[in-house]
Simulated scan of single mutants.
Amino acid sequence: MPTGVAIRDVRQQLFAAAERVLLRDGPSGLTSRAVTTEAGCAKGVLHRHFADFDAFLAELVLDRIDQVGRQSAALLASAGTGTVTGNLTGALADQFGSVAVKIVSLLIFRDDLRARLRETIPSGVPVATEVAAMVSAYLAAERDLGRIAAGADIGTLALTLIGTAHLLAVDRESAQPDTEAVAAMVAAVLAGVLKDRDTAV
């Protein structure tokens, strides 16, 4: 991109470029040069907006967490509508798309990034922890509405759904999760607590 040409929404463009590099080349290929090359801008553009590359990556993770927050609100609003299985299948398939799985891999790969995020997120695995909270809140809402058994262990159900969805995600070669496999998993995990014939996705 020529010098002096303004880049609109530069942070989001850089985040999108980082996600494309992460998907294509994995955590080891995610460098500041790779990101700016992918975004089509000079390397200095990234450093004008972020203190260093780890600061950029931390903001990338926090941006992904914000996306989880927005989806959490939408999932919670869906309580009492459709089917519990269908609502959770859609949410988990979205959250465990390639980018989210790669971000978890990135956190495992980069010790400095994990340390930096600990300053604002003292416990848990960023992104995965927020997805677990999203699922827990939704299950609790459905329990309050009577669509899930009153005695259901919401915390254990949420962790089981998240852990299994993650395993399904990392064990695939396609860009997106197999929705049918996710639906079958959700139905199996919730089979003992659903109060209605909640089998349709």
Score class of each variant (00 low, 15 high):
G4R: 01
I7N: 01
D9Y: 04
V10Q: 03
Q13A: 10
R20D: 15
L22K: 03
R24T: 10
P27L: 02
V35L: 04
T36Y: 00
T36F: 05
E38P: 00
G40L: 00
G40P: 01
A42G: 08
K43F: 02
H49E: 07
F50N: 08
F50R: 05
A51T: 12
D54P: 01
D54A: 08
A58G: 09
V61A: 06
L62C: 13
R64P: 07
R70W: 07
A73D: 14
A74Q: 12
L75W: 02
L75F: 09
L76C: 11
T81S: 15
T83S: 15
T83R: 03
T85M: 03
T85N: 11
G86Y: 09
G86S: 13
L88D: 08
A91H: 05
L92H: 08
A93S: 14
A93R: 00
F96H: 08
G97D: 12
S98E: 14
S98L: 00
A100P: 04
V101P: 02
I103H: 07
L106T: 00
I108C: 10
R118I: 12
T120N: 08
T120M: 02
I121Y: 11
P122G: 11
S123T: 15
V125H: 09
A133D: 15
V135G: 05
A137D: 14
D144P: 03
G146S: 06
G146Q: 07
R147P: 04
R147H: 06
A149P: 12
D153F: 12
I154Q: 06
G155P: 05
L157I: 15
T160P: 07
T160N: 13
T164L: 04
A165D: 05
H166A: 14
L167I: 07
D171L: 10
E173W: 12
Q176F: 04
P177M: 11
E180A: 10
A181D: 09
A181K: 13
A183V: 05
A183R: 02
A187L: 08
V189I: 13
V189L: 04
